[in-house]
Each structure stands twice: as structure tokens, then as C-alpha cells.
Design a protein around this nucleic acid. Structure first.
Length: 260
DNA sequence: ATGGCTGCAGGATGCAGA
């Protein structure tokens, strides 16, 4: 079972690259973020033609997440619990059945939070606390699950080419990292780090100032596995080839392989 | 970096991103 996540930065502007990549790599489950589309204009047919079942939690202009699955989607639950007043489309949780066992997979787009100290930063931290509560409940139920997406947190200095340049950024604040650690310490595995401990591994390069050419990147996209899923982890990869494509997303796909 | 691109909404430029 191959699960991939990719912040596509506008799925309609990148539908050709997205489908070409999905056709070549053929993940069983593909999570997309920042589709920047409401449900009605999401190009579902392009993915259905590749054999995917489609669950969408869209929003006009901004945000928006999807789960594309070659396995039938038994249930789809849009929205992160914990705040009925939150109307930003940043979370979609689905259930599939693998060899008679339920596997839950969530696609998430964690708030950026800039500028630090603003109400957006407060929203980011509150969103992370809601995510922690969600994961805590999931673990208490001893469910097998994977959380994938753009977490918008730089965990360690080695996750940035120039960490000092991110000193004032919401992605790199002690509060942001602490909230991510609280999540991890409940018992989630950073699947990439579980099988690749090397430095210089990034998932995002800014469009500006030749960041890609200078390898000025950061690692902010993750696939986190619950214990039952982590026990089956067999591999991981960041596919940075896509960043060199024509009209690329500023993020690249992250993958994890499970013996499921 | 004083954010130097990019997508989207809407029909010009402003906003959001990281």
C-alpha cells in the first residue's frame, strides 16, 4: 500500500502534472492540499479515469483538500472537529477497508500562521491543539491511521537549508514546534524520518529568488503513522523531480510504503 | 529580504501563501 501526499497549489492549474505523476507513481491513496477549488469545479473525472475514488472538501479560491483512493471509500468526514465556527476547508478524514481492517487516512492543510503573533498565528496553534485532541481520541480507540499533508512546521534546524532565515516565521516558532512534538509524542511516527535520517531533505522551495536553484528548501510536508500503521512501514521517499517540471507546485510529493 | 513568484476571483488589482 503506497500512500502519498502533495500540496498541489491549485489543482486546476496543475491537472496535467498531477495526473501524469499519479499515473507514473500510482499511489493507492493520494492526498492533495491547496486545491483552491470548491467541490463543484474539482476535476474529479481526471482522477476517476486513473481508477481513483474521490473525496473532496473544497473551498472557493483558497485551501481545499482531497483524498483519492483506489480502494473504495467507505466513509468521508470533512472538517477537523473542535470548532463549529471554523469554515476553512483544511481537513478531510476517510476510511477504507484493507484485508478486513479499517484504515483511516486524513488529508490536512495546517494553517500557515504568519505573521507570528497575529490572529492567524493564534488560529494555527488552536488548530494544532484540535488536531492533538483528534489524534488522542484516535489512538485511544487503537485505530490504524495515517495523517498526511502540509503541516507548515519546520521541526528541526536540519529541516531547512538556511534555518536562521526562518527565525521569525510562524513555521519555525517554538510554539509551533512544541505543538507538533505534542502530537508526535502521543505515539505517531514521522514516516520519512523513520527510514531516512539524512540532512538536506526538503519538500518545499519558494517560487521567489531562485530558491529551487539554490536548494533553499524546507521540510514541512509529512506522513504520520499510528502504531498499527507504523508497524507495517517498509519505505519512504520525497519525489523532488516534480519541482523541476514546467509550472510546478512549490511543494513536492511525499510517499510512504506499507505492507498492507 | 524591504518576500524579488504564483493562483485565484473577477474582469483591475488585491489577497494569501511560506
Amino acid at each position: 500500500m503506497r500512500i502519498a501526499t502533495w500540496n498541489i497549489n491549485g489543482v486546476r492549474a496543475r491537472i496535467d502534472g498531477a495526473t501524469a505523476w499519479a499515473r507514473e507513481v500510482s499511489p493507492d491513496i493520494l492526498l492533495l492540499q491547496e486545491i483552491k477549488s470548491e467541490d463543484a469545479v474539482f476535476p474529479a473525472e481526471a482522477f476517476e479515469d486513473l481508477g481513483y475514488n474521490v473525496a473532496v472538501h473544497g473551498q472557493k479560491g483558497f485551501n481545499g483538500v482531497t483524498v483519492l483512493s483506489k480502494l473504495p471509500i467507505d466513509e468521508a468526514r470533512p472538517g477537523l472537529p473542535g470548532d463549529d465556527g471554523d469554515d476553512q476547508a483544511r481537513f478531510l478524514d476517510i476510511t477504507v477497508s484493507v484485508a478486513g481492517t479499517a484504515l483511516h487516512v486524513a488529508s490536512l492543510y495546517l494553517p500557515n500562521g504568519n505573521p507570528t503573533g497575529s490572529d492567524k498565528f493564534t488560529y494555527k496553534l488552536a488548530w494544532m491543539e484540535r488536531l492533538r485532541a483528534f489524534v488522542e481520541a484516535r489512538l485511544a480507540a487503537e485505530d490504524m491511521f495515517v495523517l498526511g499533508g502540509d503541516f507548515n512546521v519546520i521541526l528541526e534546524p536540519r529541516d531547512a537549508r538556511f534555518p536562521e532565515r526562518w527565525a521569525d516565521d510562524a513555521l519555525n516558532q517554538p510554539e509551533s514546534r512544541a505543538a507538533f512534538r505534542r502530537l508526535q509524542h502521543l505515539g505517531l511516527t514521522d514516516t520519512f524520518r523513520a527510514c531516512d535520517d539524512s540532512d538536506g531533505q526538503y519538500t518545499f522551495w519558494d517560487y521567489q529568488a531562485g530558491a529551487w536553484q539554490k536548494d533553499n528548501g524546507i521540510r514541512i510536508d509529512y506522513l504520520l503513522a499510528s502504531p498499527l500503521a507504523a508497524d507495517r512501514l517498509t519505505g519512504c521517499a520525497i519525489d523532488k523531480r516534480t519541482r523541476a517540471w514546467e509550472k510546478p507546485s512549490d511543494h513536492v510529493p511525499v510517499m510512504a510504503e506499507f505492507a498492507l
